[in-house]
Measured scan of single mutants.
Amino acid sequence: LRLEVKLGQGCFGEVWMGTWNGTTRVAIKTLKPGTMSPEAFLQEAQVMKKLRHEKLVQLYAVVSEEPIYIVTEYMSKGSLLDFLKGETGKYLRLPQLVDMAAQIASGMAYVERMNYVHRDLRAANILVGENLVCKVADFGLARLIEDNEYTARQGAKFPIKWTAPEAALYGRFTIKSDVWSFGILLTELTTKGRVPYPGMVNREVLDQVERGYRMPCPPECPESLHDLMCQCWRKEPEERPTFEYLQAFL
């Protein structure tokens, strides 16, 4: 395994491009020591290896001592969030954005069929390849993070704006909380990567959403798509659509 080009840095580690087995181009995620327990990670990795779908980033291998390494397929255009905010983002029109959403829903419909939960679905965790191919990455890892700023769910590192209220408040993460996050991801797509709930801080978002506030229809977004977002944001988790439905609708 060779680490060649550093692609990015996040709160919990770095991402590199490299070569595996001398020939395969891969992405390598390294986790800061202390982010998660190697034992817990190894268990999760076994499950992650079983998830194989064309719209999920394929896991190739893991190094399960500290520092933990995760070796996955390489996606040339990086994260969907950076892609939307970058040069190419300007030229993306609604049909392409909807197609990308459908690809993500397709990957998540598979996660749904496998009775698995992602827990951290957002544009930053979707990767883009050639020809606007989108794949879901980092599934299941969020559960293992041991950082206090994260586990408190009120901490600075927790993605509260993407998280369903029952998950943020009571830790009830299910495929239905993933559906909520998918609704937020749809706003990221239609606004080219704007942060959700602009002008609001995490605490406010939690309070307002509890009181029934939902983001309005983004500019140039059809009402039918906003309606779909609002279905994803129904207060009762069981009233939210399935990913199978979302995939078919898109």
Rank of each mutant, 00 (worst) to 15 (best):
R119N: 04
Y150E: 03
N148Q: 08
R25H: 12
R52G: 14
V117D: 00
A102D: 12
G22Q: 10
V15I: 04
P196V: 11
T187S: 07
V133S: 12
N148M: 06
R25P: 12
D99S: 15
Q247R: 10
Y60N: 11
A156Y: 05
M229H: 10
R240I: 02
G34L: 10
K77S: 11
R93S: 07
E87Q: 11
A124Q: 06
T88S: 14
R122I: 00
I28C: 13
N125C: 00
L132G: 11
C11Y: 13
E146D: 06
N148K: 05
D99L: 15
W16I: 15
W233Y: 06
P237R: 15
T242P: 15
K85H: 12
T242E: 14
D99P: 15
T19S: 09
C217K: 12
K77I: 12
Q103F: 06
M200E: 08
A168G: 15
V201D: 14
E66L: 15
L81V: 14
M200C: 08
G171Q: 06
Q208R: 13
R143N: 03
K135D: 03
E239T: 12
Y150P: 02
R214V: 11
Q208Y: 14
G171V: 04
L31A: 12
G171Y: 14
Q231G: 11
Y150S: 02
Y110V: 04
W162C: 02
P165E: 09
R240F: 00
P196N: 03
L97E: 06
A168L: 05
Q208W: 15
S79P: 04
R113A: 12
A156Q: 06
L225F: 14
C11R: 01
D138I: 03
E54H: 13
A124V: 08
R203P: 12
C11D: 02
S79D: 15
T19N: 08
R234T: 10
S79H: 04
G212H: 06
I68M: 09
F158H: 02
M114Y: 05
L51E: 02
A156V: 04
V15S: 03
E54D: 10
F158G: 00
A105K: 00
R194Q: 12
V71R: 01
R52H: 13
S76T: 09
L84N: 04
T23R: 14
D178R: 03
K176L: 11
P198T: 06
V5S: 15
Q154L: 09
T151R: 07
Q96M: 15
T151S: 07
T24A: 08
G18K: 01
L246M: 09
P237V: 13
G10K: 00
P196E: 00
W16G: 15
E4D: 08
M48I: 00
M17A: 11
P219H: 12
L144F: 11
T174N: 13
F83G: 06
G155D: 08
P222C: 09
M17Y: 14
C232V: 10
L80Y: 07
V195W: 11
I175T: 15
G13A: 05
M17P: 03
G18S: 15
R52W: 13
E210V: 08
P222H: 05
Y150T: 03
A109G: 14
L31F: 01
W180Q: 02
P216N: 09
E244L: 08
G171H: 10
K29A: 02
Q231A: 11
F249I: 10
